[in-house]
């Protein structure tokens, strides 16, 4: 099995503060990998290093066989890496349709028509501005925007944050569907229970280091360990949502 992405020994700084202390992880091709950890563990910083927004000062990132450690974000995106940032970051001043015209991706199957077929709600709201959308619609738009890059790897930072439970279900269903499309996924989530349910592999970060890695089912089976490692509250863990079975 090959890796879509391999990161080894990443050290990343914001100015003088040392955030990542040698993070190593890999995303297996065609699989869903989840990255968990308490607030401030370095999850978002890890993703920002992988997509080129906050380049790692030390370490090496190999994406689809290329050393992308120092590449600018647009070149990494052109390799087929779609990024759905924390807080969605849709363009509030642009309409839905205009938001979908910003991506400049590789050639592939994803077109605006296909996006509208997958997310009918976006088609209905295509002339509305980004700022007029609900949180769930914004999340769909952020995912749709990344899909228009025709990604081979999709990186999502807390896609379920602040969404109603029903919409959270939808988001996880889309993530599972992406794997069925053959897209590798790296998922950062606060919703520990659901991400472990959908993921194949898991990494747990704490204080800028990987403190646990292994099959998602193994971690999911050990409730005490999940609580100590990820700081998941009882509420995160015992949420009422039904389990989403990983495909394959």
């Amino acid at each position: 099995m090959t890796d879509a992405l391999t990161a080894a020994g990443l050290h990343t700084f914001y100015g003088k503060s040392h955030i990542l202390h040698g993070v190593s992880l890999n995303v297996a091709e065609g699989m869903i990998t989840t990255l968990l950890g308490r607030n401030g563990a370095g999850k978002t910083t890890t993703l920002r290093s992988l997509v080129g927004l906050t380049p790692a000062r030390e370490g090496r990132i190999v994406t689809f066989g290329q050393d992308t450690t120092r590449w600018p974000p647009f070149r990494i995106a052109a390799l087929g890496v779609g990024y759905v940032p924390e807080g969605r970051r849709i363009f509030p001043n642009l309409t839905v349709e205009e938001n979908l015209k910003v991506p400049n991706g590789r050639a592939g199957d994803w077109s605006i028509e296909r996006i509208y077929a997958l997310f009918p709600r976006l088609a209905e709201r295509k002339s509305n501005r980004g700022r007029q959308l609900s949180g769930g619609e914004q999340e769909m738009l952020a995912i749709a925007r990344a899909l228009l890059l025709n990604p081979r790897l999709l990186i999502l930072d807390e896609p379920s944050q602040g969404l109603a439970p029903r919409v959270v279900q939808e988001v996880f269903a889309i993530v599972a569907r992406m794997r069925a499309e053959g897209i590798s996924v790296l998922l950062v989530e606060q919703n520990v229970r659901q991400s472990l349910a959908v993921a194949d592999h898991a990494f747990v970060l704490d204080d800028g280091m990987v403190v646990w890695s292994g099959p998602a089912v193994e971690l999911a089976a050990d409730e005490t360990r999940v609580r100590t490692l990820t700081g998941a509250t009882a509420e995160d863990w015992e949420g009422a949502a039904p389990r989403v079975l990983p495909a394959g």
Partner: peptide
């Protein structure tokens, strides 16, 4: 035009424009 739309998008969030494959330089 797409370039025009990207310029308007970049006015508010150039970083996100760059992660969408646009050479912001």
């Amino acid at each position: 035009t797409r370039v025009g739309i990207r310029i308007r998008a970049g006015t508010l969030d150039l970083e996100t424009v760059s992660t969408l494959g646009v050479n912001v330089g």
